[in-house]
C-alpha cells in the first residue's frame, strides 16, 4: 500500500481561505492519515517528504464560488525556480515543486473549492460550507483509488462552522 497523506491548507482568519485547514481538522478526528497544514507554508515540508501520494484540500481562486474541482499537480521546479518567496503563502503547487526539486516524486492531487470571500475575520461563506460534503465525497473516491477508506462521522458542515467559530471567537 502506498504511503498517503491528506493535507489541509489555509488560514481561517482570511475567510474562505481557511476551508482546507478546517476540513482537515475535522477529518483528522477520524482518520490518522489526515494532517492540518494550516498556513505553515514551507514549515510543513518536513511532514510531507515521506509520502508517495499527497492529496491537498484547499481553495482554488480560479473556480467559481462553491464549485468543487479535482486537480492533478504536474510538473517540477529547478533549484533556481524555488527561490523564496513569501514563507507563509505557499500553494500546493509550490510545496510539490519544492518536494520534486528535493528529488522526491509524490503523486499529488488537489481537491479544491472555489472561494467567495477572502475578507479578514469573516466566517466561511455559505457557498463554501455547502460544498463541503461534495469535497468529502470526491476525497473518498480519490482515497479509494489507493485503498484508503475515509471515515466521517457527524455533520461535516457543522464541523467547519465550529472551526471558524473557534478561531474567530464568534
Amino acid at each position: 500500500m502506498e504511503r498517503l497523506l491528506v493535507v489541509g491548507l489555509g488560514n481561517p482568519i482570511y475567510g474562505d481561505d481557511g476551508f482546507g485547514s478546517c476540513l482537515a481538522q475535522y477529518l483528522s478526528l477520524f482518520n490518522p492519515f489526515v494532517f492540518d497544514g494550516n498556513a505553515h507554508g514551507i514549515g510543513i515540508l518536513g511532514n510531507l517528504v515521506d509520502y508517495d501520494v499527497l492529496v491537498f484540500l484547499d481553495i482554488d481562486v480560479k473556480l467559481p464560488p462553491g464549485a468543487v474541482a479535482v486537480e492533478r499537480i504536474e510538473g517540477s521546479l529547478t533549484v533556481p525556480e524555488t527561490r523564496l518567496v513569501d514563507a507563509h503563502r505557499m500553494p500546493p503547487s509550490l510545496l510539490v515543486g519544492y518536494l520534486r526539486a528535493m528529488g522526491k516524486n509524490p503523486r499529488a492531487y488537489l481537491i479544491a473549492v472555489g472561494p467567495k470571500s477572502l475578507e479578514p475575520l469573516a466566517p466561511a461563506s455559505r457557498e463554501v460550507v455547502e460544498a463541503a460534503p461534495l469535497v468529502v465525497a470526491e476525497l473518498r473516491k480519490k482515497l479509494a483509488e489507493f485503498g484508503y477508506e475515509l471515515v466521517v462521522e457527524g455533520d461535516v458542515k457543522k464541523g467547519i462552522e465550529e472551526c471558524y467559530r473557534r478561531v474567530l471567537r464568534t
Binding site: R72, I73, E74, G75, S76, E130, A131, E138
Partner: peptide, 17 residues
C-alpha cells in the same frame, strides 16, 4: 509555482450553492 501546474480532472458545480 513556476513550472508546476494543476491539471483539472473534473469540476463539479455544487447545486446547493
Amino acid at each position: 509555482g513556476g513550472r508546476v501546474y494543476n491539471v483539472i480532472e473534473k469540476v463539479i458545480w455544487n447545486a446547493c450553492s
